[in-house]
Design a protein around this nucleic acid. Structure first.
Lengths: 199, 199
DNA sequence: AGAGTAACCGAACGATCGGTCGGTTCAAGG
DNA sequence: CCTTGAACCGACCGATCGTTCGGTTACTCT
């Protein structure tokens, strides 16, 4: 039986604080002193909950990666025409990115300085390749415009989706998550220009 | 008369080395020791050419910002229908981003920890607003599909363009700059899905 | 040849880094 | 009441941070 105890830190609650600071100042730009200030406990107390700075990073990027890879296991990602599976994955990527915003944000900013960061970069590449193959299959079916090169299109679409972490703020009630994913799907598949009657 | 001297560092040549290292390790993750190793001179010698680490950052982001703002002064950005001016700016943004790749890369990664970084973020916001107004004007003309919200579309398009710095490598002869800007314009304005005859 | 100076260097500065250590506090369980 | 252990703390560690300082080298100009 886990008695709920009182209001004290767990590795998870400490992580949510740390990730916020990491995203604001950058991982390398954040000192343990910054973290202790933000968490309201002393620097040394942090080491009671986690083994160090890098474990916090590892926990954060793992959470983000788990969320993304889970998309590929969903029925909508494996059934139907490739172009429809692609649309499902694109929409769900936006949703996961928004649901796990701070964790995905941190994931997308790792540079590869430590072993943990290099591991994260490798898993990200795996995920990207899986989606790229979906787009390739859709192209083979003739469902995407042939004049855009597939690898290029993959990267640009990923770029658009991933850029959401740079501006989306759930607390500022602007666009909802649904509106954002609708807009992304609309833009990715149909573009900006209005359909016009034949000139 | 500036005699060309021999092969010695100038602030500019030193900057090109520093920016490479900054982009690889992140600004905060780069020490002056890293820079001195990469430049092949001692740490203290760097201070003969520049006042310090932050001056290198300031020079780099200034160069990137100057390149971007120059686009808005071009004839193509001020003449014609807004939707055509927008297309010009989008295409030229891709070109400038590729021409000044390492400098723009660094600009797009500043987090706001120092005064220089906050200044860079502010100028970036200025530029973004100028382009957003172009898209708004194009929407007012009825030249973009009305179901996509304008602010949202601006951010997504910027996200797609800016993401190019994450993968474009001029030395790896994959897509040329022209191919990339064509693909971006194609994707932004017409989307991924092939135009199909009425079902 | 001698003066001037741009380019460079090793050694060291105080500050801060991530992390460790030896405690103290306090609520729960017997 | 007394033990136990989770949660926390201040003080401190060696290493590294960005930067400074007092030179030395080597090239240019007269």
């Amino acid at each position: 039986m886990t008695t709920p105890r009182r209001d004290t830190y767990t590795p998870e609650t400490l992580l949510s604080v740390a990730v916020q600071v990491f995203n604001q100042r950058g991982y390398d730009g954040t000192s343990m002193e910054h973290l202790s200030k933000a968490a309201g406990i002393s620097k040394s107390s942090i080491y009671h909950h986690v083994s160090g700075k890098e474990e916090l990073l590892k926990r954060a990027v793992s959470r983000a990666l788990d969320g993304l890879f889970a998309i590929l296991e969903e029925p909508g990602a494996g059934e139907g025409r490739p172009v429809e599976r692609l649309e499902h994955v694109v929409r769900r990527m936006v949703e996961v990115l928004i649901a796990e915003l701070p964790y995905v944000t941190l994931l997308l900013r790792v540079r590869g300085n430590t072993e943990t960061e290099r591991w994260a970069l490798e898993r990200r590449r795996d995920f990207d390749h899986r989606v790229a193959e979906l787009l390739k299959a859709a192209a083979a079916d003739g469902d995407v415009r042939p004049e855009v090169e597939v690898r290029l299109a993959t990267r640009l679409v990923f770029g658009m989706i991933n850029s959401i972490v740079e501006w989306y703020r759930p607390e500022a009630r602007g666009a909802s998550g649904r509106e954002v994913s609708d807009a992304v799907v609309q833009l990715v598949f149909s573009g900006l220009r209005r359909d016009r009657p034949a000139t």
